[in-house]
């Protein structure tokens, strides 16, 4: 949508919301609240559209008998059952909550644990295959910071030399995190300004 009307609306909206932070007057705040309400409603509609798209993709896989059709069939059937159960019982029903507490939480937590094991194994294979300075550095840093984050070495913090060394090592992740956050903040600022002045138009496709 390369319409200038869309660009005008987007720029005006962004400038209005930005001004409301610097000039928190009554009309400006009311306008900002109205725009945000619209945004919330549109986001909810977008969520519904995303759900329908997901179901449509898996339904087409089942219909076309693609290689992953059995899994897609499970997804579609499960979705239908959950939807019907939610409509019949409502999400606040204690029986329906078991869908989340007894199925979703254990499954997702187990998958996350498997992911952590896979990452550890991949790091080990990397160390075996790419023997070099970087590989050795990666392996040593992984082991050290695992030990530091686990709190195993917390009892050594009172040892004069080791305590200082552990304090220095604990600062390293925070230093890296600050660098990452600064980069993210600057990038977000530039992206917001580009959208506000119309230089970047993600809404135009």
């Amino acid at each position: 949508m390369r319409s200038p009307t869309a660009a005008v609306i987007a720029i005006a909206t962004s400038l209005l919301v930005l001004i409301s932070y610097f000039v928190p007057a009554g009309p400006v705040l009311a306008m900002r609240s109205l725009l945000l309400d619209w945004a919330v409603i549109l986001a909810a509609v977008a969520g519904v559209i995303a759900i329908l798209n997901m179901v449509g993709v898996h339904f087409r896989r089942v219909r076309d008998n693609q290689p992953l059709a059995p899994y897609s069939l499970i997804v579609v059937v499960t979705f239908v059952i959950t939807l019907l159960a939610g409509l019949f019982f409502s999400p606040s029903d204690p029986q329906f909550r078991q869908v989340v507490t007894a199925i979703q939480v254990p499954v997702e937590a187990s998958l996350l644990a498997v992911v952590s094991i896979s990452l550890a194994y991949a790091a080990l294979r990397f160390f075996q295959n790419r023997k070099g300075l970087m590989a050795v550095t990666f392996a040593i840093s992984a082991v050290v910071f695992l030990l530091l984050a686990s709190g195993i070495l917390a009892g050594l913090a009172q040892v004069p030399v080791l305590g200082t060394l552990l304090a220095v090592l604990n600062r390293l992740p925070m230093a890296g995190a600050r660098g990452i956050l600064l980069g993210v903040a600057i990038g977000s600022l530039i992206a917001g300004l580009r959208i506000a002045i119309g230089a970047h138009r993600p809404y135009s496709g």
Binding site: L29, R32, S33, L36, D37, A39, V40, A43, A44, G47
Partner: peptide, 19 residues
């Protein structure tokens, strides 16, 4: 559930009873 991500959060921060 509060939808809308950051926008919804902003709206809730301004007027929780309307959201």
């Amino acid at each position: 559930y509060l939808p809308g991500g950051a926008s919804g959060l902003q709206a809730f921060a301004l007027a929780p009873q309307r959201v």
